[in-house]
Design a protein around this nucleic acid. Structure first.
Length: 405
RNA sequence: GGGAGUGUCGCAUAGCGGCAAUUGCACCUGACUGUAAAUCAGGCGACUUCGGUUUUCGCUGGUUCGAGUCCAGCCACUCCCA
């Protein structure tokens, strides 16, 4: 099976500028392509992960990836977050974030021997001269056409700043530069980037009279039409400090039935035949098998086999009724939190970060949502004696281990 | 520069001067389940000796026994005119 077929079968392809050309180039391993990442945080999240997978797949097929880090766009602050204007990131933060990104990416992408490169668009964007840019690039863009682009059309009602309006120009310019400096002939990205990417191919054609290609990958939406990889508490991060391997595992273990197969196809490297076979046998237990595979496979990709095994074991122990608590999320209490070896149940919950306030904890206790060592606690005044390991259960799925430091 | 309007618990939306403040979504807990979905029930500012206590409605002052609600100034956003 060719790379292109694989991508297509996995449902990753969204829009392409020139199907035949792209298919031929990437199958032959002749493409040099780039994907942009704006360094808005100090860790990548699930949204970036798909792009990385795509890079990896293409790299394995012999194509050369360029990681474009948005050091320049980050200086201005990516305005695509609709509700609030992002805080200006300091150059130090951006540099730091870029370093973090690079480190995480090198787990997936092989940067050795120039097989892939990372560049920072600050290198050229920061030195641009306004008037020069307008004459060189601005003349190539028709405002009328830009306004008809989907990404702007939607914003016309809510308001669009000049800064945001220029985003397409900057991204187009990036492509233009990469095409000239590195022979980069393709750009990939999320489907929401489509019009920005077209801007680049258009610019290259007008300025250089050459063809470049763009392709978008399907956005990973769940069955409710929301972006995957978000929880109420924020994004699901790839950094184990920000989202522990166990939490990461649980996120995928708990996806909706309707989304398992899609996630397996789009995010994992499990053979497509295997996934398609599973799809045929999904009744009851089949779903759980599929979800476990999804969770394990992704945790392994992101955190390594060891962590994946631990998470799987912890999950099985906890939900299978077994007693193995070795890999459960845990808190060590210092003795000064205890009175006569015991602690109030509400304080305990707060200490472990299971509830944000004592009021919330009180409600949980009163509603019967808290168990200690498998015994339901319904009295908010109860004191819990901490001896050895104490297992707290909140709700149906959250387990936490407490020990004394 | 001129005019109109808006700013309430994550989002959205009520709120005759006496309300911890309506409703929907989201979220949390319980029941039913498959660590799924749907459904039903309860909860959803904080602290509490469970009797209460206390802090909130863009910001700052004022009127009033009492203000989310009235007045003034400021800030932010939206719309219309230039």
């Amino acid at each position: 099976m060719t790379v292109f077929e694989e991508l297509e079968r996995r449902g990753l392809l969204a829009q392409l500028t020139d199907r035949e050309e792209i298919e031929e180039l990437i199958n032959a391993g002749k493409a040099t392509f780039y994907i942009g990442f704006d360094p808005t945080a100090d860790s990548l999240h699930v949204g970036h992960f798909m792009a990385l997978c795509l890079m990896k797949r293409l790299q394995m097929a012999g194509n050369k990836p360029i990681v474009l880090l948005g050091g320049g766009t980050g200086m201005i602050g990516d305005p695509s977050g609709k509700t609030d204007m992002r805080k200006m990131l300091t150059p130090e933060t951006i540099a730091h974030n870029i370093e973090c990104f690079k480190k995480q990416m090198s787990r997936f992408i092989d940067f050795s021997d120039n097989k892939a490169i990372a560049v920072n668009n600050a290198d050229w964007l920061m030195n641009l001269n306004y008037v020069e840019l307008l004459r060189e690039v601005g003349a190539q863009f028709s405002v009328n056409r830009m306004l008809t682009a989907e990404c702007y059309k939607q914003r016309m009602e809510r308001g669009l700043t000049f800064l945001e309006f220029n985003y397409m120009i900057m991204q187009s310019y990036d492509f233009y530069r990469l095409f000239q400096d590195y022979g980069c002939n393709m750009q990939f990205g999320g489907d929401d980037q489509w019009s920005n990417m077209l801007g680049g191919t258009e610019l290259i054609r007008r300025k250089l009279g050459k063809d470049a290609y763009a392709m978008t990958i399907t956005l990973l939406l769940n069955s409710e039409g929301k972006k995957m990889g978000k929880t109420e508490k924020g994004a699901v991060w790839l950094d184990p400090e920000k989202t522990s391997p166990y939490e990461f595992f649980q996120y995928w273990r708990n996806v909706a039935d309707a989304d398992v197969i899609k996630c397996l196809k789009m995010l994992t490297f499990e053979p497509i035949e295997k996934i398609e076979e599973m799809e045929q046998n999904l009744e009851g237990a089949g779903f759980n098998q599929a979800k476990e595979l999804l969770a394990y496979s992704l945790t392994e990709l992101v955190h390594g086999k060891e962590e994946a095994d631990k998470a799987l074991e912890a999950a099985r122990a906890v939900f299978g009724g077994g007693g193995n608590s070795a890999n459960m999320p845990s808190t060590e209490l210092t003795t000064d939190k205890l009175t006569d070896g015991a602690i109030n149940i509400l304080d305990l919950l707060v200490e472990c970060g299971l509830v944000p306030t004592k009021s919330e904890g009180r409600r949980n206790v009163q509603q019967g949502g808290i168990s200690i060592n498998n015994e339901k606690v319904t009295d908010p005044k109860a004191n819990i004696t901490i001896e050895g390991e104490v297992i707290i259960k909140k709700g149906k799925k959250i387990f936490h281990k407490v020990t004394i430091a």
